[in-house]
Computed example of a mutant assay.
Amino acid sequence: MHLVQILLPTTDASTSPFPPELFASVRDELTRKFGGITFHRSAPAEGLWLSDDGVEKDAIVTAEVMVDAIEREWWAHFRADLERRFDQDEIVIRALPITRI
């Protein structure tokens, strides 16, 4: 079993917040596909990374789903769609092996 985490920015490049409907569409799509989701959005995390322009940062929220197997092709298409919807160069999606207890 795997825990898939999707790191989503809370604002666009001009620091305007994304509309709640955008997150709701992600929540609803993942709930339909996987039967459930955990969305950590009450306290956005701060993401930092180095770029050619110095240190950049984002406020991010995390969506998580548990899956038995990783469907890499589906996730690649989903990530590309999220990058388009959120107008991002990259949306990070990561999977961690877990044991359900």
Rank of each mutant, 00 (worst) to 15 (best):
A13W: 04
V61N: 06
V92S: 06
E73H: 07
T31V: 10
H40N: 09
A13K: 12
D68N: 14
S51G: 15
A43W: 09
V4H: 01
K33Q: 14
R94E: 12
D12Y: 06
E83K: 10
T10N: 03
A45I: 08
I91Q: 02
A69G: 05
S25Y: 00
M66C: 10
P20L: 03
D87K: 13
M1F: 05
G54T: 11
V4N: 01
P17A: 14
F34E: 03
R100I: 14
T62K: 08
V92N: 03
I60V: 15
A59E: 15
S14A: 12
L48Y: 15
M66E: 15
S25L: 09
V26S: 01
E90Q: 11
Q5H: 03
D12G: 05
L48V: 14
R27F: 09
L48Q: 13
F78R: 04
I60R: 11
D53K: 15
G35A: 12
R85T: 00
T99H: 10
D53P: 02
E46T: 14
R79C: 05
V26L: 06
D81N: 14
D12S: 02
L3D: 06
S51W: 13
E21N: 06
M66S: 08
T10L: 02
R94N: 09
E73Y: 05
L22Q: 08
R79F: 01
R94Q: 11
E64D: 02
A59P: 01
S51H: 13
P20C: 05
S51T: 15
V26F: 01
W75L: 01
T15F: 05
E56M: 12
W49I: 14
S25H: 03
S14C: 01
P17T: 11
E46F: 02
V55F: 11
D89E: 14
A69E: 15
K57A: 11
G47F: 09
L82S: 03
A95V: 00
R41A: 14
T38N: 10
I98S: 09
I101C: 09
W49M: 13
R79T: 09
I70F: 04
I93R: 04
L82Y: 01
T31Y: 00
I98V: 15
M66K: 14
G54W: 13
V67P: 07
I70S: 00
V61T: 11
R72L: 13
